[in-house]
Nucleic acid binder design. Structure first.
Lengths: 239, 239
DNA sequence: CGACGATTTGAAATCAGTCAAGAGCAGTGG
DNA sequence: CCACTGCTCTTGACTGATTTCAAATCGTCG
């Protein structure tokens, strides 16, 4: 069986609901165009009316929005297998930006084809709904993180989430990975300043929870870090 | 035509997508049980496996989650017509709490019936999906609010959102309403302390943006307040 | 080597939190 | 009708986590 470039989407959706062979075949035969984008290119911009949904095939992307005072808030980080633009596509008008963090390859699927597969294969539709609900669960956890945890727990929490999600996506090892973002971007995800992120990472390293060199992170004891982070995987709905 | 207690759900879903007479009839004939709950009773608790989705018929409810350090974060406030528990029902295991803020009446609809209507009436299913995506858009805006706006803008933003949503739900006037929550609960929604909420409300009143007595709020100039709040209705996806 | 962006560090400023106490208000029961 | 209780709201004084501003170092790439 030839491996379709869209197969990561099948793998991801199967995390949420069982799919029949017919469901899988329908997904794999979704029309699409592969595109490469360079770091910092926009995949979708706020106020766009998206014509395509983008499946991430490689690299990393972020969702974010900019406040009137210039502050930027990142809502989530996306990786291989994520359909980064279901929210904006189904809502028809984008209320936030999606931007490549690194060089990325994406499969662009026409929104019309997404709508057709929902009707023709309701189980696939429900799996995509599920995917957007897990995104929403992540947004909630990030709100809790930003709103009610201090800088140390907040930063540790992001490191834990990234570790678990990389593991689930089959990228990198759980205790050792490369962060695909600058400290300034981390700051925008955690609602801190780049200066304070720097101090907080140093602090976590001084305390012996992590080791780092450049953007590479090694988690020395995941359970300990998770305790500091007040991290509990349940919000990722993986079981 | 007899008015079904479920009709607020039809009105709400029609905000998102057009529904045929058959779609509407299918919604109105959803099986359900009406229940009344008193203020502060839980509708769903984190870790529950919900068997029913709750449609709010009267009163107010909140979504929230408690961090390990005891801090509570409220994610959204719900009112008449909101199906408060679609997220938890579809995900099968609740990752957050839903709690009555005031005395509420709810219609409890079995999750199985929700799943059936999704398959039998795909447009209704898509409208419910849309509803959860608008919830997610509100979560994102709240993350931006908590993460990147100062106490004054943040508080003003909540006042603006509440005003607009009451208006859409056909409750109260846009420039004059009763907040259904204590300042401590406001603090949990805005990631501030009750003390600072108090000072911030006073400040907004001293500046002439609002008048208040007890929990009643009068917005003196909505556009001015919206400017202070960095508030833009687009994230509510009402048009 | 030079340039640019990213990281690191220090010192001072600030927004919001903490602690504490008093005032207002509703409900209860004597 | 009044005293008591409990909860919410209000205000003041002080503390502290994070920001701001500024400058130095590091690393990569041309």
């Amino acid at each position: 069986m030839p491996v379709s470039p869209i197969s990561p989407m099948v793998d991801k959706l199967k995390l949420w609901l069982p799919l029949t062979a017919a469901d899988e075949a329908a997904i794999l035969s979704l029309p699409h165009v592969i595109r490469s984008l360079r770091a910092s290119e926009f995949i979708v911009r706020e106020d766009d009316r998206p014509t395509h949904s983008c499946l991430l095939l490689s690299g990393y992307a972020i969702r974010h929005k900019v406040a009137g005072n210039g502050g930027r808030q990142i809502f989530s980080i996306h990786m291989k297998g994520d359909v980064v633009d279901l929210h904006n596509s189904i809502l028809r008008r984008a209320d936030h930006n999606i931007q490549a963090l690194t060089t990325v390859d994406v499969a662009m699927i026409p929104v019309a084809a997404i709508r057709e597969i929902i009707t023709a294969y309701p189980q696939v539709g429900e799996a995509m709904w599920y995917e957007t609900l897990v995104d929403a669960a992540i947004f909630r956890e990030w709100t809790l993180n930003v709103g009610r945890r201090d800088a140390r727990a907040r930063t540790a929490h992001l490191l834990c989430e990234f570790s678990v999600r990389l593991d689930v996506a089959g990228l990198g090892e759980k205790d050792h990975y490369e962060l695909p973002m600058t400290q300034e971007q981390l700051a925008d995800a955690l609602a801190l300043t780049n200066v304070h992120i720097n101090r907080t990472l140093k602090h976590l390293a001084d305390e012996g929870y992590i080791e780092r060199s450049k953007r590479s992170i090694r988690i020395l004891d995941f359970l300990q870090l998770a305790r500091v982070a007040d991290f509990d995987t349940r919000y990722l709905h993986l079981d």
